[in-house]
């Protein structure tokens, strides 16, 4: 399981990265943490001409609050995100997601940008970003553009990024009062890719759900937004009956493919289970909160 031969080049600035990309062509790939890419190359699933190492580009690092927005550099590792006070306070869904990503040694190296750009449909972070209505900043020699998370994921390992583009940052609206979230996934073993998972972000005011995003992972070829189930919840309060109704409705949102863990029917069933568990977790947290 040795990778095919390729060139390794390192870019220390974005400009250098774009220059190297132009030099090495369409079959050159960005190397961030490498935790998915290098494993895939070990299976010789692709044969890039070159890997352009972007892990030491300063502007890709770091977490900061800009007004109502939290900016996460695409090169920030899962470990850094998991340990960040800013993330815990302002984007708690991400903080909850991090421990579910593989294992410590992987999290120390893997980056949020790498995970999003790799676009594994069973990964947690793409679903979280869709649920959080994140915006992705993509850059190339031509300049910068912003892509909503909702529009970013096109399919299995496929995204809106152009071949010469690089994901540089993720911008996520900071949580405000009334925001609630949950992340639930079903795995056979700790750290495994999910059999089924959901990221939920909802906003509640005056005992009513104003907005809600239910985003499934491992249940489609990309993060799946459950519009029908969300519609059941909108404008109502979060009570057990309503949760039950949302769970029943969710089948209309899904057309899951089977995998080695089980067929589509099992996936549909688990989708209901994770939806209910996620919403019940929010409900339980609400009930524990001081009035």
């Amino acid at each position: 399981m040795k990778s095919p031969d390729f060139a390794y080049v390192r870019a220390d600035t974005l400009d250098a990265a774009f220059r190297l990309k132009a030099q090495h062509g369409a079959d050159a790939r960005w190397l961030a943490g490498g935790q998915s890419l290098l494993a895939a190359l070990a299976f010789r699933l692709s044969e890039p001409t070159a890997l352009i190492d972007i892990s030491r580009i300063d502007v890709l690092q770091g977490i900061a609050v800009n007004g109502s927005m939290v900016r996460i550099g695409a090169g920030t590792t899962h470990t850094t995100i998991g340990e960040s006070d800013i993330i815990r306070r302002h984007v708690p869904l991400l903080a909850d997601a991090v421990p579910h990503i593989a294992h410590t040694a992987i999290r120390n190296r893997g980056t949020i940008g790498g995970s999003l750009a790799f676009a594994d449909p069973a990964a947690e972070l793409p679903a979280c970003c869709v649920a959080l209505e994140a915006t992705f900043v993509a850059a190339s020699a031509k300049g910068e553009r912003r892509i909503s998370a909702r529009d970013f994921f096109h399919g299995v390992y496929a995204t809106a990024l152009e071949n010469d583009e690089l994901l540089t940052a993720i911008e996520i609206p900071a949580a405000v009062a009334g925001d609630h979230h949950a992340l639930i996934e079903i795995t056979r073993r700790s750290g495994d890719y999910a059999m089924a998972g959901i990221a939920v972000a909802l906003r509640r005011s005056d005992d009513k759900i104003d907005r809600v995003r239910l985003v499934f992972f491992a249940l489609g070829d990309k993060p799946v937004v459950a519009h029908v189930a969300a519609g059941v919840l909108l404008g109502t309060d979060l009570v057990e009956d309503q949760i039950e109704r949302a769970a029943k409705a969710v089948s209309a949102d899904l057309d899951p493919p089977g995998d080695l863990n089980g067929g589509p029917e099992m996936k549909r069933h688990l989708a209901q289970v994770v939806l209910k568990r996620a919403l019940l977790q929010i409900l339980n947290n609400l009930m524990r909160m001081p009035a």
Binding site: G262, G263, E265, M266
Partner: peptide, 14 residues
């Protein structure tokens, strides 16, 4: 005895 087989045994999954 996988989750799918157990769910099938329970009649929750065809």
């Amino acid at each position: 005895f996988s989750p799918e087989r157990i769910l099938q045994a329970l009649g929750k999954v065809p």
